[in-house]
Write a protein that binds this DNA or RNA. Sequence first.
RNA 1: GGUGUGGGUCAGGUGGCCGCUCGCCGGGCUUGAGGCUUCCCGGUGAGAGGAAAGUCCGGACUCCAGAGGGCAGGGUGCUGGGUAACGCCCAGGCGGAGUGAUCCGACAUGAGCGCCACAGAAAACAAACCGCCACGGGAUACGCUGUUCAACCGUGAAUGGGUUCCCGGGGUAAGGGUGAAAAGGUGGGGUAAGAGCCCACCGCAUCCAUGGUGACAUGGAUGGCAGGGUAAGCAUCACCCGGAGCAAGACCAAAUAGGAGGACGCUCCGAACGGCCUGAUCGGCUUCCGUGUUGCAAGCCUCCUUGUGAAGCUGAUUCGGUGGUGUUCGGGAGAGGUUGGCCCGACCAAGGUUCUCGGGUAGGUCGCUGGAGGCGUGUGGUAACAUACGCUGUAGAGACAUGGCUGCCACCAUGUUGCUCAGUCAGCAUGGAACAGAAUCCGGCUUAUCGACCCACACCCAUA
RNA 2: CGGGGCGUGGCGCAACCAGGUAGCGCACUCGCUUGGGGUGCGAGAGGUUGGCCGUUCAAAUCGGCUCGCCCCGA
Length: 136
Amino acid sequence: MSDVPVPSARVFLKTKEDFERVKRDGVRVTTRLFNMMSCASRQGETRVGIVVGRRFGKAVTRNRGKRVFRALVRTTRERLLQGNDIVIFPKRPVLTLPHSALYTTWVTTLTSQGLMVPPDPLSPGRMGRQGQACAQ
RNA sequence: GGUGUGGGUCAGGUGGCCGCUCGCCGGGCUUGAGGCUUCCCGGUGAGAGGAAAGUCCGGACUCCAGAGGGCAGGGUGCUGGGUAACGCCCAGGCGGAGUGAUCCGACAUGAGCGCCACAGAAAACAAACCGCCACGGGAUACGCUGUUCAACCGUGAAUGGGUUCCCGGGGUAAGGGUGAAAAGGUGGGGUAAGAGCCCACCGCAUCCAUGGUGACAUGGAUGGCAGGGUAAGCAUCACCCGGAGCAAGACCAAAUAGGAGGACGCUCCGAACGGCCUGAUCGGCUUCCGUGUUGCAAGCCUCCUUGUGAAGCUGAUUCGGUGGUGUUCGGGAGAGGUUGGCCCGACCAAGGUUCUCGGGUAGGUCGCUGGAGGCGUGUGGUAACAUACGCUGUAGAGACAUGGCUGCCACCAUGUUGCUCAGUCAGCAUGGAACAGAAUCCGGCUUAUCGACCCACACCCAUA
RNA sequence: CGGGGCGUGGCGCAACCAGGUAGCGCACUCGCUUGGGGUGCGAGAGGUUGGCCGUUCAAAUCGGCUCGCCCCGA
């Protein structure tokens, strides 16, 4: 990873126009933990935006919702297929569930939508393996 | 030891892997050459709170307005002090709660207006009503009574008193199922009945003295008692307040539209005047525009290279002098605009092009964190606080950073096992670990909050 | 950063300024009407007035704090 520089602006959506475009043209997917909309990007890269509204909670809760998904994107960024813009709408159960459940939901959802390379059976996700090993 | 009251401190610690924001240092490159910014990499340092929250007050700061004063509007409301200021804090007074430590209190005001349901005789100028009382007049039902007469021991009649009832003009405010509240309270004397009518104590009002800066307190004298509640209804009095807010404000500054100014001004024909340039070809200079190619990606500046490129200036050649150009006048045709759905008609007469300028939007930069700053000690002050000296350097984003996963230790609760007379200690398991995230800054208030620790004080129990 | 509004039976709203009885429509329940249903008629139930504290004899109403929702301006 050190020989491939990754600016923050290429991983996350920043401008209002990008969000509006995805919300207008994107395809919607609903899970128990989050909603997701995605469409083809303009620059050929894959960027993720996280939207947390006021109904999600107070400022601390909203920040936590965004941080959890930002960390999720950073740990799985190498397996994302290029050329998509994704917008995530977290739901409230994210705050109480263990991290492993959120991780598996995230991976299976993006894989089924064709946005992520399926996990390599020889070397599965690093974070998931650690979390399950410690829970036992 | 238990139960409380007040004040203060802290807001788990320490590692591993992967990440974020900002500062500093070093490095990475674009190209013909050099430099700069963004960007990228590595190292290194820093990185949320006691409430950062609610936005309820007060200031700093910035812009706008403004002689001074007043009205309106809003706020505050016992006294003194602290402070940059406050509706905050400290100390005190008064009232209330508590056995107590202590806590709570929008706690200014004579007049005027409004309101006070229901109940009640009456709810606000104090009188009317019921009742009580004596007096005058009338009535006399009566197991009451005095006197006289008759009668003679049963009693009857007359007259007066008492009682009761009615009427009259008076005296009263003690009493009047109510009500939150109704003309000081309790006791005694007094009176026809009563009443601060008189007396004692308590309350109240006025005056005086003393203490205190003051709120107020204490004492004395006098008055016999003034007169409901509500001002967190309107109002009055004293004091305070110019308005807006960092999206304040300052600077740089695309595109489009609009503003101001300058230049040229549709095309064709004819005439007059002024006037000698002008076009074409070749070349030079200046400015602008472009050009130069594998950085991860983008931009800027200087020099250089380069162009059948644009504008201006200029040299040479030769052709044109019936050309070109400026002003004025006259004529014709077409196109344009307004009216109208369209055409005719009517009306308008360059409304166009280009350049410059300023305002200014997107965007960018600054404001942006060193300030009534913290900590310690000394001094003054009961205290809030002030002051001197020393030490210290502490977030600054812009889809908005301080995170994700995890090991160990510590803490709390519950269960269980072992030791012990018991308290307690030790081990194991499970669960818990709050409220909450800076956006200009600061002083307060209010609200939320799992808990831990420290200090002072009060009450109760036990022991000495 | 600044300003404004709202919260009352299941729903939509009155009463609040000017304190004393919480009312209206729809919906609900029961009865009558009908062969049955609807309609109509009659009766009834249902409200800690978002929460806490205060002022007052008395608070949905007045004052303060707080919670939630909505709107506006820069």
